[in-house]
Every structure is written in C-alpha cells, then in structure tokens.
Write a protein that binds this DNA or RNA. Sequence first.
DNA 1: GTCAGGCTGACTGTATGTTGTCAATCTGGC
DNA 2: GCCAGATTGACAACATACAGTCAGCCTGAC
Lengths: 148, 148
Amino acid sequence: MAHSPKRKLFLDLVRAIFRINGLLLADGDRMAEGVGLTSARWKVIGIIALSNAGVTVPGIARALGQSRQAVQRITDVMQTDGLVSYATNPRHKRSVLVQLTDQGQQVYHALRTVQDPWAIGLTDDVPVDELESALRLLQRLIFRMEKP
Amino acid sequence: MAHSPKRKLFLDLVRAIFRINGLLLADGDRMAEGVGLTSARWKVIGIIALSNAGVTVPGIARALGQSRQAVQRITDVMQTDGLVSYATNPRHKRSVLVQLTDQGQQVYHALRTVQDPWAIGLTDDVPVDELESALRLLQRLIFRMEKP
DNA sequence: GTCAGGCTGACTGTATGTTGTCAATCTGGC
DNA sequence: GCCAGATTGACAACATACAGTCAGCCTGAC
C-alpha cells in the first residue's frame, strides 16, 4: 500500500489543505484588519450574521466544528469591543444568545465589501462545476471523518 | 455579486477547508499520540524524512508554508526529546541541518504503519480522478494566493 | 415530582502559530 | 575584495485552539 498512487494523492491533498488553510487565514487577516477584526472573529461573526434570532456559544462552536471554549473567548472579547451582545435565552436560563450589535452589523457589512470581490477574483477563471465537485469531495471526507 | 452562486460555492468551500483542516489535525493527533507525537511534529518529521541529507529549519518552514519561528520551536523540542539532531551545515555556518535520529526514524516508521491504513480507508470508495481534480483545484487556488 | 444524564459557563494548562525586532552571517553584484 | 541586501537564529508579545475539570442548570424518562 505504500506504493499506492492513491495514497500519495491523498497525502498531497492533505498537504494542500494545510497550505490553503494557512493562506486563507493570512488573506482573511489582511482583509479584516481594516475593520479591526481577525480571521477567527469574522468566522464567528459570519455564523452570527446568518442567524436571525441569535445563537448560543456552543451552537456557533458546533457550526464551526470547534470547541466551545475557543468560541466563548472570542465572543467575550467581541462583547467588550461592542461588536456582539448577550441576550437572555428564553429556552435556556444559563446559555445566552449572541447577537450582533449595530456596530457589529456595520463591521460585518464592511467586511463583505472587501471579502466578496476577493472571493470573486480568486475564482475568476475556475469553472463552477470544478468548485462543486471539489466541495462535494471535501464534504464527503468530512462526513467520513466526523462519523468514527 | 452578492447573489452569485459561485461566490456562495466558494465560501462553502472555504468553510469546508477550515472544517477538514481541524478534523485532519484531530485525526493526526489521535494517530500520533501512540508514538508520543502531535500533528505539528509529524508534519515536520515528514519533511525531514523526505530529505536525505538533512534540511535547514527555514527550509522546512518553506516546505510547509509556515513561519520559520514556528518550525524552530518544534525542532528544538524534538531535539530535547531525542527525535532529531542538529548537524553542522557545510554550506552555512549558522544554519544547521536537521536530521532524524535513530529514534526519530523509528517513530516515523511507526507513524506510517498507522497513517497509511487511515489514508487508504478514508479514500476507499473515492475515485482517483476525483482526488486528482480536487487536488488540482486547490493547487490552483494556492498558486493564485501565493502570487499577490 | 424526582433524578440521572446532558449541556453550559468558567477556569486552567498546554500546544501551535503569527508578527516584530535585533544581531550575526551569507550571497551576489560590482 | 567589498559592500548592500537577503537569510538566519534568538527572543518576545500576542492570538488561537484543544483538553480537562468543576459546578450549576436543563431535559426527559420514570
């Protein structure tokens, strides 16, 4: 199996994923610094913005596939920075809902105006069906890795 | 452009890359803990093992697309753990060569015996050409992001 | 209603990664 | 040979992420 071409292919894919992950974070930081964010924070802001009624911290963590402690610390910092606010959760006494403040909304939209052209430019000459099939492959691998 | 399906597709792809990056690190840690490694360390060990004559710390960093400081810290720890050794570099007075010790070699091979079946099993029913095209797409994106 | 088990917040420790800075070394053009 | 610019090692500050732990709250089965 050590000589399986598929094995080498897969390990190359793993290396590419590590590499592009780092590059995406670097690009994200570069785009976000204009609005005073870091990539970890706009990842969280993106999830909150997608929800209408607010989400709990563990809910954000599950959506991102991260530990709730990591998300908790980020939301705490963003609260002191005035980007998010905690609202009482009618369905759970201790688990509060995280919502974007007006300032948080403004930052989110400012970020979008930078992020959207970046996303478009990067995939300029990449056919849609290639994006689709790559996404399907990754999601398939994710699914298999999440169900042990 | 906000309604471009390609934009949403790309952002889904970005999310999938973040997700699978985390899962790969978690799986890597799980596999590596049996031999006393972490995923950051086997990434470095893998690069060293591929080189015959030894590589410099900045060389490893370039291969991984990371900062040399991050790699330096890892190799320092692995040296005190006896996995790697520093050899004088005939081509550079200050920049030493990192080499695997016998123990490092053993750990590397022990890791392979766990990692290879994992790689095979994960891509069991994934056609080779799908892996190839996904890899090509990622490498294309990487190339565009590396050349600003 | 009660209670066991799950979920959540808070805290701690550790690992990893980035950027920035400084001095020492190396390289290549002249 | 010499010097400007790149490379390297060393150190520091900071951000992010994970795992573990504990106590309090919630949910659902009984």
